[in-house]
Write a protein that binds this DNA or RNA. Sequence first.
RNA 1: GCGCCUGUAGCUCAGCUGGAUAGAGCAACGGACUUCUAAUCCGUAGGUCACAGGUUCGAAUCCUGUCAGGCGCGCCA
Length: 554
Amino acid sequence: MKNILSDILLSAAKKAFDKQKLTSSDFPAFGIEEPKLSTHGDFSTNFAMVMASLQKMPPRKIAEIITGEIEIAGSIIDKIEIAGPGFINFFVSPCSWHSVLYKIYEKDENFGSSNIGKNIKVQVEFVSANPTGPLHVGHGRGAAVGDSMANILSFCGYDVQREYYINDSGRQINTLGRSVFLRYRELYEEKVGFPQDCYQGDYIRDIALKIKNEKQSDLLDVPEEKAVIFCARFAAADILAGIKNDLELFGVKFDNWYSEQFLFDSGKVNSAIEAFKNKNIIYEKDGAFWFKTSEYGDEKDRVTIRNNGLTTYFASDIAYHMDKFNRGFERIIDVWGADHHGYIQRICASIEASGRKKDQFHVILIQLVNLLRNGEPVAMSTRSGEFITLEDVVKEVGADAARFIFLTRHYESHLDFDLELAKKKSNENPVYYVQYVHARISSIIRKADELGIKEIKWDDKNISVLQEGEEIQILKILSAYPEVVRSSAELLEPHRITYYLMNLAASFHSYYNKHRILSDNPIITINRLFLVLAIKKVIKNGLKLLGVSAPEIM
RNA sequence: GCGCCUGUAGCUCAGCUGGAUAGAGCAACGGACUUCUAAUCCGUAGGUCACAGGUUCGAAUCCUGUCAGGCGCGCCA
């Protein structure tokens, strides 16, 4: 609809220029939007206003010239008005909205999809929690955002891969091994000191017990160093299996699990660092090797290899991101916790230094989740190991509710997640509000079937009986769906889909309460059924992008 | 001290990258179930868009400064 109007405007402007009514044929970018007030028409453009300075004419005058060149007869336009400082308002004929229903029917689950991605290979990396403990609620938010983002991009024609990066090397894994080994020894000895910097959670004891079951006391007889390494590997594998399981319960599946250890074993870290050394981007100072990140906008240079010979986390991340591009991805999207924001600059630096463009790399920063119960904060302490895991949350409130709530906010703002509210089956809980639309419509369609309406067909001749204000309103909202999906993909903002669905749901519930779908007029009935069927399809379609189910019965 | 993010109704948040009279939900108050699912709907009330300047036809949105909150500033991960 907007494209049609845009073409009409441009050709009218061209005509006006040819007739020398306008002084410039240079038409800057303009906007077409849906005004908040219905008295301002169905669509409105600032065309005349943005042209004012170029044309050296007052906006209202330009608007008059352009609208004078538009032929209304035979078009979708009913009426054009010039208003305010120079807005051109279009009133579209009500009948022109109905065609969206056929489009939805025809495209079905692909309604709203596009090819703006042009099949470009994109990788979305998310969660990537260290395999040193179970996933918590914050990881859940990252998982919901990352997974939904991947769905949306894929729907918009990108070739998407979901990847989980496993930090399975380095000191923390060693700490994990030590922690487990100490708990293991506790199973045999009376007093074993357990330092503060070890992992405190009870899951460490569980893992120690598993090792005992498998190895009995064997580990007490081998050198401690070897025992710790065994415990580390065992524990990491065990925890990772748990993480995979949790994610599966949450409805998230990765295409690829990428190991940091593999980066070292395959020599990728080494060769990346060597390559940068040769280009003098990595230099030696005070016995350490520094990356010249400051030349790419970072505050200072960063160490890649410490003077004790050990690499930093940054070193493997340089190699990791190089490798992503080498695997053929043209766009890289990383989903991180907001506390890592200071890290963006240096990864950008390494990407630019390896000859890639800055805009091929995006970081989505996820803000904290405050876990509440009836409005009261739930005590969470990683140190003591007492915390509510993602698994706990999913088991308590369900994956649908959790995912939807994680996507009800822009990821840059803090999110209050109330466990009790997430379970409530009422208006306060947006998940059910949206799902209920799907269930209600399903129920209506079942009822219609019982009444003998076996097939809901497109009725080209009579579709225009849908003339109620609520009906036209819904048609407008349905028409906007493809655009919402597109902007959600372009801006990397899944919450736009969530808001759209809540809005569509509200319009439907309101309509449902005011008008009967199954009326005593068969023509109205069949066309209303066609309308609600379209709503049902779009609700299901949108929920799918969020990774939320669309139940037939509630 | 430096950098990044946030500041919108009592609460939680949207605001389509600068548009017309700033919107939802919750909470408050008043209504609607013999009718397709009340997990719903209708109505009322609620605002100095943190504050002060600036940019222009036009600012919640862009720029500068101030204030408040969060986070980050290691040869840690």
